[in-house]
Every structure is written in C-alpha cells, then in structure tokens.
Nucleic acid binder design. Sequence first.
DNA 1: ATGTCTTTGTGAACGCGTGCACAAAGATGG
DNA 2: CCATCTTTGTGCACGCGTTCACAAAGACAT
Lengths: 261, 261
Amino acid sequence: MATGRTHRPATRSRGIPEATVARLPLYLRALTALSERSVPTVSSEELAAAAGVNSAKLRKDFSYLGSYGTRGVGYDVEYLVYQISRELGLTQDWPVVIVGIGNLGAALANYGGFASRGFRVAALIDADPAMAGKPVAGIAVQHTDELEHIIESNGVSIGVIATPAGAAQQVCERLVAAGVTSILNFAPTVLTVPDGVDVRKVDLSIELQILAFHEQRKAGEEASENGAPADRAAALAAEAEAAVTGDRKGPDGDLPAVMPA
Amino acid sequence: MATGRTHRPATRSRGIPEATVARLPLYLRALTALSERSVPTVSSEELAAAAGVNSAKLRKDFSYLGSYGTRGVGYDVEYLVYQISRELGLTQDWPVVIVGIGNLGAALANYGGFASRGFRVAALIDADPAMAGKPVAGIAVQHTDELEHIIESNGVSIGVIATPAGAAQQVCERLVAAGVTSILNFAPTVLTVPDGVDVRKVDLSIELQILAFHEQRKAGEEASENGAPADRAAALAAEAEAAVTGDRKGPDGDLPAVMPA
DNA sequence: ATGTCTTTGTGAACGCGTGCACAAAGATGG
DNA sequence: CCATCTTTGTGCACGCGTTCACAAAGACAT
C-alpha cells in the first residue's frame, strides 16, 4: 500500500465504487453520533456495528478513500468525519430547489436532514398560483414561471422533484435546461435526462410493494399453498380487465395456464 | 410461522432474484399505464423503454415468473398486470400503520400511491397526546398506547416508521413484538430487528449526499482540491444529528419539528 | 529493544446481476 | 403446408460487490 497517495490518483479517486459511495453517508452519520459523544477513536468492528454493515466491507470502503486508520487502534473519529464529508462534497454549500409543494414537498422543505449537511433550500417552487407567496417552512413559495431565473441566479445544481407524476418530466426538462445536473425524484415516473445528469429516485409505493412480496412469501412458506386469495385475485383480475376485451379469465382465479392467444 | 429457518440468501424457493423483485413494481406501473390506454399487448422492447431498463433484463426478469409472453407478438398487458400483481402479493389487502404523524407521516398518509395498490392505512399513530383524535387524511390519529391493540386487532403485518430517529428503535421493537414482520423505515437510524423481519429504509438526506458526491466530481474535474477549511467539518460534526437523544426538539439541526432527521 | 497483542488493509475466491447474442417458438402471408 | 419474419427465452461471459482470511503495521508492556 502507500503507493504514493497523491491527491488524485486516477486509479482510486476515480474509482470509488458506487456501492461504497452509497454507504459513506451511513458511516458519516454513525461517526457524527460518536463525535457528539466525544469518542476519540473507533474500531472498524464497532463502527460497522453502528452502521449496520460488515466490518470487512467497511474497511474496504475506507481503503478506497485512503489509509486513514491506525493499526491496533482504529480510526480517529473527527478526522474520519472530515475526510468523508470532504469526499462527499459536504464541505461546501449546496443550494437546492424543491419543485412541487404539496404534502410531500412541504414535508421535505421542513426536513432538517437537508439543511444540516450543507444543503440549503434555496427556493420552493409550485405551479399553483394560489401557493405563490405562501410561506412554507419559513420560505415563500414561488411560481413555476420563475424557475429558470431562480436556478440561474442561485447557481442551483441540485433539484428535488415532488410534483405529481404527470408534471415531473416537464419540470425535469426545465430544471436541466436551466443548469441543474442532479435530480432527486419523488414522482412515480421514469425521468429521461441527457447524459451527464444524475437522477436518483425515491418511490414510496415501490418500497411497500417490495415488502409485500417478502411478506407474502413469509406467509406462504408455512401455508405452502394459497389459502384464500383466490377471490381477491379474481376480483383484481376482473377489475384489471375492465378496459380490454376482458373475457379470458381463469375460472376460479387460480393460476391459469399460460393464456392462449 | 416457519420453524427454524436458518437465514439464507432470501431468494431461494423458486428463487426470484432480489434485483428482479425490486423492478417488478416498475414494470407494473408501466403496464398499468398501458392498460389504462387500452393497449392490448406490448413487446419487451417497448415495455423496457417505458420502465427505463434494458429489454434483455426485462425478459430475464419475466422469465423468473414463467413464460408469459408470446414469441413474435409480445406480452398481453392485462395478463401480465395480473401475474405481477399476484407475484408481488398485491392481490390481497395489506393493512399498514404509520407511526409518527409529523410532516412526513402526514404526507405519507395522504399519499395516494399507497392506497391505490392494495395497501390500506389501518391507523395513524403518534406519541403526542395532542394529536390524538385529530384527523389526518380522513383518519383520526391514535395514541401510541394503543399501538399493540391496533396491530393485533387489524392483523397488521406492515408498519411504516416516520418518527424522529431517537424514537425509531423503540417503536420498531413494539411493532415487531405486536406482530409486524415488515417495516418501512423513514427515520435516519439503523434498526435492529430479529430474524424474519424485513426492513427497508428510505433516507432522504442520504440520497442528497450521494448526489452531492457526483455533483462534486462533475464540478471538480479541474479545480481538484481547494483548501477546504476543517472548521466546516467541525461545525458540521457538532451540528449533526443528535439522534441518540430522540425527541423532537433541537434547534434547527437535524431533528426538525417533525421529520425524522 | 523486544515481544506480544490488537486492528488495519488487502489479496483472492465467490456469487450475483447485467447485457450480448442467438436459437427456438410462434405468428403471418402466400 | 411451407417460408419468412418477429420476438421471446436463455446460455454464456463479464464485471462488480461481498466476504474470508491473513500478513503487515503499529501500540503497548516489560
């Protein structure tokens, strides 16, 4: 190791695995908690436990950042907090705009987790003229017409979309055209963006559906056979077929064989 | 409940890969849109484009469910909607409880994406006595004291935690003890749960931090390193989440009025 | 100094997920 | 009934991420 660790080894700084990047905030949170308790150092084992990951994984993650630990001792908490913050870009201030001030948008505006880490809500934007000027989380909502102006004059590069699904793509395009290059999307839609623009998606209902899958599997593992969902399945199928021809439904809602043409 | 089930990769039985499960809701959403437009069939290429994935991946995903396509034609939209819904367990009704009715909890309660897919909000629960009885999204908030009773009498197996970070673990334990086996966690904490309980985490600030990382990389190609002050890191550390304590208070830092920080 | 003990950093093996490329299956037209 | 055309389903190879296991590095005691 210790291969002349210059400040931008193309081999490493370029190559922080995406999976590692996604865990850095987790480590940072755990470290911050330790820092507040004035814990000076922490071992990979302890920190891994606090972050809910494997200790070998944590060490490997940190190894991508450099050798910040001391063998036999562990990691210096404050130093690591700083290094991770810097790596994540949290040592600078990121102005963000939130578009779509409905229930979710308002909740996001009030969310302290944003402001506390170098993220500053530069503006709240909504398409409803009735919302304009109304204060949410201490910030006056502005109308969509001003979107471009807001982005440009504040140098905003990160946008949060909390609009209805139907408006998301259009809002996205306007954000990108105005200079936004990272988007956090809460609308249940697939956003299409040009190269160079990052999109991360948070979809509440998808998470629940994934849980439902596992829940169903747990339930079906003991009652190895379908207990009674046949009725509901049939009902859903019927409802679903309302649109189309709708005359090819399993006789009793059970697994119909592969449907013929 | 199944007896001694040593923990395994979780995707065993007829082994639908976890990555595939996570995409099924995406396909389902795209298919539902097609269904509403009365589109009878769709090719893997078209559907993949609508869902924002690779067509080969989509076909492979579907192959885990069975052979539901017709070569030379594509997939029957209605039939596929039914199959995926059934696979995800959406053909039955899932009562869920939301614990922590702050800004986010209220937004979740109002979120239509839950109710529209077999998920029914059975109860809203908050620790604040002042909230008790207050209607949110047409449902009267109930006090935490009734948590166990609500879970048991409604047969709730899925719980949503939208409390401050400090309360999350305790709430989690009570939910699990009362019979909940799947948890969607919005609080920025690592939840510890017994085997057999699934936890999915949604962390808003982590998503932003990941975006910031990429944003910094994009911006910092040439302005590689600036002498970032360590003061910033110290300030950040001090201000960061006081998650440990756990009650909603805090100046303006991580734990805002309502959201889990 | 030297030995012992703790913990890091990492080489290597393994498993999962992704995407290519193509043969098989079925529709369609003559 | 046969030929052609479209699209599925999947074998295969590759790369990423995870985990194990251990040598090296440093702290600490004697």
